[in-house]
Amino acid sequence: MTGAQLKEEIVAYSKEIGIDKIGFANADVFAGLKERLRLQQELNYQSGFEEEDIEKRTKPELLLSGASTIISIALAYPSKMKNAPRSIKGERRGIFCRASWGRDYHHILREKLALLEAFILEKVPAAQVKSMVDTGELSDRAVAERAGIGWSAKNCAIISPEFGSYMYLGELITNVALPVDQPMEDQCGTCNKCVDACPTGALVQGGQLDSNKCIAFLTQTKGFLPDQYREKLGNRLYGCDTCQTVCPENKGKDFHHHDEMEPDPEIAKPLLKPLLTISNRDFKEKFGQVSGSWRGKKPIQRNAIIALAHFKDESAVPDLIQLMHTDPRPVIRGTAAWAIGKIGGDQAALELSKAKEREKDDLVALEIDKGLKMVRNQEIS
């Protein structure tokens, strides 16, 4: 069997197992990416979640000896939620980004890649294969760009003509030589909507992201959220879709090809107040299957507190007071104190003052002071 014939069979099989798009790239060094990653590190734009070794990120040969071809796959995910519940007064809701709707995409893509691996090994028993999704060493986007899945857009996503940027990406390295596909021309042109719309200015310029300012990254951190980003968070619990939703290439793009990617509205857009007191067991039971749960419940709870402050939800104040007085985690106590001050109300000043008398953590005490200052400003105005 020739490489061209094998490629045809792999493409046909990929459609059988529900892969929406597949592309083939050579396994040469990603030289351009290497320079961009070095610049990212110099500017301290990295999130810290990436593989630190730039050589591993840009040299497929280091990951698989004799690497010849990289197969990139894409699965389209929904952009619209059916029967989305409304966020109303007294029953305010948060939101998980679209990439965290349905079952954790890491598992879905790994299963597809495992099937592809088995198919290749059946055809070429001596083949070597190595797959990865998101958390692997290679850049999913760089591979997808080279494999012709789409172009690398100004919002730092891959955009395909068929699916826009609403795609999950994964790749498979093999030592089997296969014909490659051609990269796609950049089609962003003069459009700058994603850069202009970024809530925090994290898109420094088209194609360059300061991860430390990106709301998608900030929602996953575990410490106190910096003051300048709290207002920007809105009701986001995990991730941010702004640079995707404003993109003209995504207009009208909404795909429901995979049942396991369909969001449960009560998980993707959950009520905020129950999140404040949810147990570890209940959190894992309810949210454990979605990708947004990977950092545990603490960041989600912190973000829920900030979201309640964003809505100025007075009905949440009793729960926030309880957290401020009794929660063992400083970040939760302090963020609750800040939120109480933001929402205000008759109890705010008294409860914040009580908490200040007892609090021994300096950072929490600082948040209490911020809360007290907001309450006083409300009283004056």
Rank of each mutant, 00 (worst) to 15 (best):
K286S: 12
S315L: 13
L352K: 00
P330W: 06
L363W: 09
A355C: 07
F311D: 00
L363E: 15
M324N: 03
P328H: 10
L323R: 08
D362S: 12
S353T: 11
G334D: 03
A349K: 04
K356G: 13
R281L: 13
A336F: 03
I278R: 05
F311P: 00
Q322N: 15
D313Q: 06
L308G: 01
W294V: 10
S279E: 07
L320N: 00
L320I: 01
R329D: 14
L272C: 06
I343D: 00
P274K: 11
T277N: 12
A316C: 05
I343F: 01
A307V: 07
I340S: 00
P270C: 07
V317S: 08
L276R: 01
A349T: 06
L350F: 13
R295D: 12
I300L: 10
G344R: 00
A268Q: 07
D327P: 04
Q347T: 04
E351I: 10
L350V: 14
V290L: 11
D369I: 14
I332A: 03
L276T: 02
Q347S: 12
I368H: 03
L275M: 12
K356L: 08
P299V: 10
G344I: 01
K297N: 13
L350K: 14
I267M: 04
I300N: 14
K297V: 14
V331I: 11
S315P: 11
S293T: 05
G296F: 07
K342Q: 05
K284C: 06
E285M: 15
M324C: 09
S353F: 09
L366Q: 13
A365T: 08
D369Y: 09
Q322F: 06
T277A: 13
N280C: 05
K356M: 04
P318Q: 09
D264W: 10
L366H: 14
F287M: 07
P270Q: 08
G296C: 05
I368E: 00
A339N: 02
K356T: 08
P263G: 13
E285D: 15
R329K: 14
L350P: 09
D313R: 01
G345C: 06
G344L: 00
I305N: 01
K298Q: 15
M324K: 02
K297L: 13
T335S: 06
F311E: 04
G292D: 02
F287H: 05
F287I: 02
A309N: 01
L350H: 12
Q301L: 07
I300C: 08
Q289F: 15
F287P: 08
I343C: 00
P265N: 05
Q322C: 14
P270M: 06
G292C: 02
A304C: 10
F283C: 13
A268C: 09
I306H: 01
Q301E: 10
I332C: 07
L320E: 03
K286Y: 14
D313S: 09
G341R: 02
A268K: 09
P330I: 02
K269G: 14
L352G: 02
I368Q: 03
V290D: 10
G334Y: 01
S293G: 07
G292T: 05
E262M: 15
I368G: 08
W294S: 12
F287W: 02
F283V: 11
Q347Y: 04
V331M: 05
A336Q: 02
D282R: 07
R329A: 15
I321F: 01
L276Y: 02
K312C: 07
S315R: 13
K269I: 14
A304R: 05
D362R: 06
F311G: 06
E357S: 12
F311A: 02
L276W: 05
D282G: 08
